[in-house]
Design a protein around this nucleic acid. Structure first.
Length: 160
DNA sequence: ATACCGGCTAGCC
DNA sequence: GGGCTAGCCGGTA
């Protein structure tokens, strides 16, 4: 049973909640969450100890143990490989994850991403260039984050 | 099994 | 281009 630590961590996109084990980050949530909500959510997904940690000591990697293997993990892992400043469409990510044709299901997998913004689901946009939805704060935040990473967004559409 | 539902898409006006 | 539809896939009840 692994100990999970958590803290509000200053990131380029603001102060996000992160939780981690010795093996890597295992959960994340946006700045608007309060501590009680984040902790209770962590406890629901993890039955070990949960305690406050040092925000300066967050590990670099990701601990995938709490993401069940299968489609979800395939897609999240593929998403984690998208570099800052780049985007993919839901359809492209489906291909890269080894599930061509599953664009719609990729949307669902992104919507339930347990590790925003560490798994950068904000970099996944619609096939026609429109920003698309964003569960961890809405489309406006998604657009802000992309712009901050150097992506050109105009009227809610990623420049081609 | 079956029947929705959702961060999508391609095709057709 | 815009708006609509039907199809799509994986998750969940």
């Amino acid at each position: 049973m692994t100990r999970v630590l958590y803290a509000r961590v200053p990131l380029v996109h603001g102060s996000w909640w992160l939780a981690w084990t010795e093996d890597g980050v295992c959960a994340g949530a946006g700045p608007e969450w309060d501590e009680a909500r984040f902790v209770s959510w962590i406890r629901r997904r993890h039955d070990g100890d949960v305690a406050g940690g040092d925000p300066a000591a967050v590990p670099d990697g990701i601990d995938w143990r709490f993401v069940p293997s299968g489609f979800r993990r395939d897609v999240l892992r593929a998403c984690a490989r998208i570099p800052a400043g780049q985007t993919r469409t839901y359809g492209q990510l489906a291909v890269e994850a080894g599930h061509p044709g599953a664009a719609r299901a990729v949307g669902t997998a992104m919507a339930t991403n347990p590790l925003p913004p560490i798994v950068p689901c904000h970099r996944v946009v619609r096939g026609d260039g429109r920003i698309g939805e964003y569960g961890a704060g809405g489309p406006a935040r998604k657009a802000e984050m992309l712009v901050r990473e150097g992506v050109v967004v105009r009227d809610g559409v990623v420049a081609s």
